[in-house]
Structures are given as C-alpha cells and as structure tokens.
C-alpha cells in the first residue's frame, strides 16, 4: 500500500490582470488573462514573477520586501485591497482578478505611485516630531525617559506601512482626492500621542480640521477592515474627531 500522501493534482490558475501602460499612447486599460499552474505555498509574488518571466515580460508590478512589511505590493485582489506578497493562492478561487489600487497615479499595470501620495500627505500633515531645539539635542546625555506602555502604544500606531490599502478601501477617499485618509489621520494621532511633539491641539486642528481631514471621514470603516496591519483606525479617527471638536469649541 502506498503510505505517502498523494497531493491532489495542482490547480490551473486563471489570473486576470488589468493592464495599461500610460507611457504607451496606444495602450488602453483592458483585462488580460494568464494561465498558470499553481505550486505549493505559492503567493501572488511568486505567481506574478512567474508570469513576467515566462509569459509576459512587460508586466509591471511592485514588490520590495516580499514579506508583508514594506507596503509596496498593495493591489486589488478579487475586488479587495490587500498585500499581494503575503496572499497565498491557495486561499483564493481558481480565477483571480488583479487590478491596481485605485486612488493613486498609475505607473503601469499593477504599479501605482503610492510613494508620491504618501510624501504629499506627510508634507501636508507634517508627520514628524515638532520640537524646538531638535537640532541641538544634547546627544551625549541620557535620553528623555518615557513610560514603557506609552512607547508600546506609539509603536502600535507606527506600524502603518503606507501601503495605501485604506485609501483604496475608503469610499470617501475615492470620491475626494484631497482627503488625507485613514493613513494620514492615524499618523496625526501618533504624533498627537507623542509627548516629544510639542504641537498643541489647536495646531493639530489647523492640519486636520476640515473636510479634507478628520471631518471628511464618513465612518465607512473600509480602512479598518482592510488594513493589512490591523491598525485600530476607527478608534484613532474617533479619538481625533473628539479632540478636534473639543478644540474647536
């Protein structure tokens, strides 16, 4: 008797990709299908590279860390935003549809310019520690103390990898290009919580106190539900909303 477990015959995946190359004046957005044999432990990172190497070398997509930590590979996977590199094909149906994240400038095929968007957001919301004399901290002396739990809380909010999934999952952001999104609002709460940042509530209000900021959020909660890092986005946005309301009085 054969005691070695026989695995089922591998599936043949049908991967439909929304293609468009803005550098090519003749290109128009269209879906293209690729057939691929599924392999053990195959991720979309592996699958897309295989397509590029064997079927269509012009296919554009972005991967950097391929470990779910850099935020490069956000895309729409069967309608939902997610990180392609850590999506196993075995968790998906045989037909997989991939599209670039909406809400960002398209570079080509599945590659979008999240970097430009995020830099714009960071400049607009000034997502850095604002403190006087930062250039003249005496780095020979002991560092400022901080409560251990506070440090952990800050890290909790800092785990955002700027993947853009929350923008793609947010109806508000899709309708209003200038909305800073959950990613931006979360970062503001991160600096608000940080005692090293000397900005007052009133100063924060100047950054987010309008419809492009916290009051633009309509609590659609797509951000929270699709954030690959499971950040407590609803909690943070609500916190910011309450604080900003209290400030405005």
């Amino acid at each position: 008797m054969n005691t070695i477990p026989v695995s089922e015959a591998p599936r043949s995946l049908l991967i439909r990709i929304l293609r468009h190359n803005p550098c090519d004046p003749d290109s128009a957005p269209h879906f293209e299908s690729f057939e691929l044999e599924e392999a053990e432990a195959m991720t979309l990172f592996i699958a897309l590279n295989e397509i590029r190497q064997t079927l269509d070398p012009s296919l554009q997509f972005d991967f950097v860390c391929r470990a779910g930590i850099c935020g490069s590979c956000g895309m729409i996977i069967n309608g939902r935003p997610g990180l392609a590199c850590r999506t196993l094909t075995r968790d998906l149906p045989q037909c997989i549809t991939l599209a670039p994240l909406p809400g960002f400038e398209l570079i080509g095929d599945l590659s979008v310019n999240t970097g430009k968007w995020m830099r714009g957001m960071a400049e607009r919301l000034e997502t850095w520690v604002h403190a006087q004399h930062l250039e003249r901290v005496d780095i020979d002396q002991l560092e400022q103390r901080m409560e251990p739990e506070l440090a952990e809380k800050l890290y909790e909010l800092e785990r955002c990898i700027e993947c853009g999934c929350c923008i793609a999952a947010c109806g508000t952001a899709q309708m209003h290009e200038d909305f800073v999104g959950a990613v931006g609002l979360n970062q503001v709460t991160r600096f608000h919580l940080d005692p090293r940042d000397e900005r007052s509530d009133a100063e924060f209000y100047q950054l987010v106190g309008d419809e492009t900021g916290v009051f633009g959020c309509m609590t659609l909660l797509g951000c929270e539900d699709y954030c690959p890092k499971d950040l407590p986005l609803a909690t943070q946005i609500a916190f910011l909303r309450r604080r900003m309301v209290a400030t405005a009085r």
Binding site: G79, P102, G171, Q174, M175, H176, L220, L221, G222
Partner: peptide, 29 residues
Amino acid sequence: LRKFPGSSRQYGQLRQHMGALRHPDTTLW
C-alpha cells in the same frame, strides 16, 4: 447632503468602488 456624491464622476467612482469591494459598512452608508 454635503456628504452625497457631488458630481456624476464621484457617483460613478462610488458605485464602482462599492461594486468591487462589497464592503458591508460602506453599503450601510
């Protein structure tokens, strides 16, 4: 009313977004 899609472009984007995402809370809204 301010929260309604302000133009047919926005409305189109919203419909497309909802159709693809099928996200319960967005649908509730």
